[in-house]
Simulated scan of single mutants.
Amino acid sequence: MQNIFLAGSSRGVGREVAKLLLENEPPSVNLTVLLRNPTYAVELEALGAKVVFGDALNAAELEAAIAKVGDIDIVITTMGGLPSDRGERADCEGNKNLIDLAVKAGVQKFILVSSIGSGNSVVALAPQVLATLGAILKEKEKAEQHLVASGLTYTIIRPGGLKSEPATGNAVLTEDPTISGIIHRADVAKLVCKCVNSEKTNHKVFSAIDRNMLFKPVEFETFNF
């Protein structure tokens, strides 16, 4: 079975990814999740995940947590959120620490969930949106760049505007950085899980949107797994 390490599973897309990876009975993967807050541990352990604790913004703490895991084949991270007391964001520094440790651990693949508006997809967002989210998107872009430069086999997925509603099944990936729209977190998780065993997604950067919830009705090429 594959050994998967997931960071960012306390809520949102990460929690949905954990549910999907563990939905088979028995699970088809060994999943370890990184938590900073023990509040969420009981639910994740009930799903079948192994839980390790640590703050990704503390490189030594993160390394100690990963050392408890053993072999790791694939890392998935959806980390983000509010800055620390020192002004650091998991979007950038936490993910960079995780990337560096993945290199040391010889991880086979690293999947980073970022956001439309990062990197060359900045052109997809309206100026008023960038005025609000620009600083966060720059941090996400730094993490993306660090991953690409790391030498790891990577997949970067940039979701559009996120909603916590049931999956529609209409979500797609595209390499077109000009596309933007809405996507449900459960659909993002499905796309992430499809990338786990897809060699076609290696060294690719995607935008993830629901084809029925585009901000502008335009034609674009979707990625076929």
Rank of each mutant, 00 (worst) to 15 (best):
M1T: 06
L6Q: 08
L6V: 01
G8Y: 09
S9D: 00
R11E: 08
G12F: 01
V13N: 00
L21H: 10
L22V: 07
E23K: 15
E25D: 14
E25H: 15
E25R: 14
P26E: 06
V29Y: 02
N30H: 13
T32I: 07
L34A: 01
L35C: 01
R36I: 05
N37Y: 05
L44G: 02
A46R: 15
L47H: 06
F53P: 00
D55E: 09
A56C: 06
A56Q: 07
N58T: 00
E61Y: 03
I66T: 09
A67M: 11
A67L: 10
I72L: 08
V75A: 13
V75W: 08
V75F: 13
I76D: 03
G80Q: 12
G81C: 10
G81P: 07
G81Q: 06
L82H: 12
L82S: 13
D91C: 10
C92N: 14
E93G: 10
E93P: 11
K96H: 04
N97E: 04
I99K: 01
D100H: 11
L101S: 09
A102R: 09
V103N: 02
A105P: 05
V107N: 03
K109Q: 10
K109L: 11
L112R: 02
S114V: 09
G117D: 03
S118F: 04
V122Q: 14
V122R: 14
L125S: 07
L125E: 05
P127S: 03
Q128D: 14
Q128K: 12
V129T: 13
T132S: 13
G134T: 05
A135C: 00
L137C: 03
L137Y: 07
E139P: 04
K142Y: 10
A143I: 11
A143H: 05
L147E: 06
Y154F: 15
Y154C: 01
G160R: 10
G161V: 15
L162C: 06
L162R: 01
K163W: 14
E165Y: 14
P166Y: 06
G169K: 09
A171L: 12
P177W: 04
T178P: 13
I179L: 11
V188C: 05
A189D: 00
L191Y: 11
C195M: 11
V196A: 08
N197T: 14
T201Q: 02
K204Y: 08
F206L: 01
F206C: 03
R211I: 15
M213L: 14
F215I: 13
T222I: 14
T222N: 12
F223D: 05
